[in-house]
């Protein structure tokens, strides 16, 4: 009887651990960059929340748009007020899955493909981006670079500033997530 309970408790523990292996961070990095002959825009956010489930190969990001710091204060204000409307839609989210044979806990760098939904300015698009995942003893380091078009996320750029804002932004992501206890 007791053996039976012990067996099932162990089974449950085993079952759960094989299903979920969470790596989390609250200080992930997301930056986006626009280059035009007239003006360069650089905005960086170091307070990105990210979680990777190495067991299920799931991944999710969430960040506050007000956390982006621009080189010029006025750009930051325009970004929040006119483009992403952060009072109405404060967050940008991503949730998806990744493919590739990543062995957590065993050191190595893996090329993976991340697929999922990016939500920004109340618009959701499915995206697929190449990324690298580096595994260390107790952490997973993710790096990715891709492009985003502001127009895809229902942001209209008035003609007067059109020449100062690139039509595609380069987005860089760097997270260093630690195994959750």
């Amino acid at each position: 009887m007791k053996k039976c309970i012990l067996f099932f408790v162990l089974l449950i523990a085993f079952y759960s651990s094989s299903y979920s292996q969470l790596y989390v961070t609250r200080t992930g990095f997301v930056g986006f960059y626009s280059k035009t002959p007239l003006e360069d825009i650089k905005a960086e956010n170091n307070q990105v929340y990210a979680v990777i489930d190495a067991g299920k190969k799931n991944i999710a990001f969430s960040l506050l748009l007000k956390g982006f710091v621009f080189t010029k204060e006025l750009m930051q204000e325009h970004f929040n007020e006119n483009y992403v409307e952060s009072d109405k839609y404060p967050k940008a989210n991503f949730s998806g899955v990744y493919t590739g044979d990543v062995t957590p806990g065993k050191e190595g760098v893996y090329k993976v493909t991340v697929k999922g939904n990016l939500t920004l300015h109340n618009v959701t698009h499915a995206i697929e981006i190449p990324a690298t995942l580096e595994t260390k003893a107790a952490s997973l380091i993710g790096n990715a670079e891709f492009t985003v078009k502001p127009e895809d996320y229902n942001m209209t750029i008035p003609s007067i500033v059109r020449s100062k804002i690139a039509s595609t932004m380069t987005v860089k992501i760097k997270i260093n997530s630690i195994i959750a206890k």
């Binding site: 299903y19 979920s20 989390v24 609250r26 929340y49 990210a50 979680v51 489930d53 299920k56 799931n58 991944i59 999710a60 990001f61 969430s62 967050k91 989210n93 949730s95």
Partner: peptide, 11 residues
Amino acid sequence: DSSLLKMLNDA
């Protein structure tokens, strides 16, 4: 698992 995002947003 399917609501990793919810977990992030709660945090």
